[in-house]
Design a binder for these strands. Structure first.
Ligand SMILES: [Zn+2]
Ligand SMILES: [Zn+2]
Ligand SMILES: [Zn+2]
Ligand SMILES: [Zn+2]
Lengths: 134, 134
DNA sequence: CTTGACCCTATAGTTGCTACAGGCTGCATA
DNA sequence: TATGCAGCCTGTAGCAACTATAGGGTCAAG
């Protein structure tokens, strides 16, 4: 299997696959006589793993960790669980942050009366803290 | 006012201020005899604006746009409003994406039985799509 | 024998900073 | 006066996680 087919199969760009190889996430495949990369089932499985984990928002470092753990079939999976839970906590934090931001912004937009810039509450609120906001 | 004081006043790192100057977001200030940057009230106001907009999650391009608009005091602020509303829509999209992700991940974690890696549902779910998920 | 799709390497760009390295300036203290 | 040290200067490289060129080589079909 050459890189283009692997790319199509995993919905990954060719450049991304080469990038994963360069950073040591995907093992180097063999080469054909014409120096083309030649992938097998193991590569497909590993890249699928990476893509799924990335889709779930794990960082490349977390993916690396999960891959290392998954290679150690006999160990307990508490470590896997804790990586996943840590990631969940990060997501919760991000959601909370975005919600707070959304509230702020929504409030600001609600005050804009669509008049002149000089009267715009949005612009005013962004300016220096001369008068208190909220 | 020299750069360190401006940095402290606006809770911005010195390097960030120089960075904003380099990308043309903050106008170049005058210099002292010793070649130190010398800021005034206008710079403070502009940097405050930038910081607030950034805190609200606007990109630097959006900030640039808002700054340009805010300089044109007589115009209608519908353009400002539309920048802000576009940003709000982006935030809503991000929140929705994160929530979907969170649901997926939570479901996955709930299935982990804390046994051996080889039985771990998290690892399994990350693997190639041999059997359907969901 | 040429076209065109595919592959190769290497390097630079993206966003929004942050962190050096190596060198001035300016003020207080011994 | 010397010297120390905080603060400033420029310029460049690094972070995540790719993406996009440039400038070539390979391979099968027509
Ligand atoms: Zn508010
Ligand atoms: Zn307005
Ligand atoms: Zn699910
Ligand atoms: Zn498990």
């Amino acid at each position: 299997m050459q890189i283009g087919e692997l790319a199509r199969t995993t919905s990954t760009k060719v450049e991304t696959i080469r990038f994963y190889e360069k950073i040591g996430l995907l093992p180097e495949p063999g080469r054909t006589a014409g120096n083309y990369r030649d992938y097998g089932a193991a590569h497909l499985a590993r890249l699928s793993f990476i893509r799924r984990a990335r889709d779930l928002g794990f960082t490349l470092d977390q993916v690396r960790e999960l891959l290392a753990l998954s290679d150690d079939r006999s160990r307990s999976c508490t470590a896997v669980d804790s990586v996943a839970r840590a990631h969940l906590a990060q997501i919760d934090q991000k959601i909370a942050d975005l919600r707070a931001l959304r509230r702020e912004l929504d409030e600001l937009i609600g005050q804009c009366s669509q008049g002149a810039i000089s009267d715009c509450r949005i612009i005013e609120a962004l300016g220096p803290p001369s008068n208190a906001r909220h």
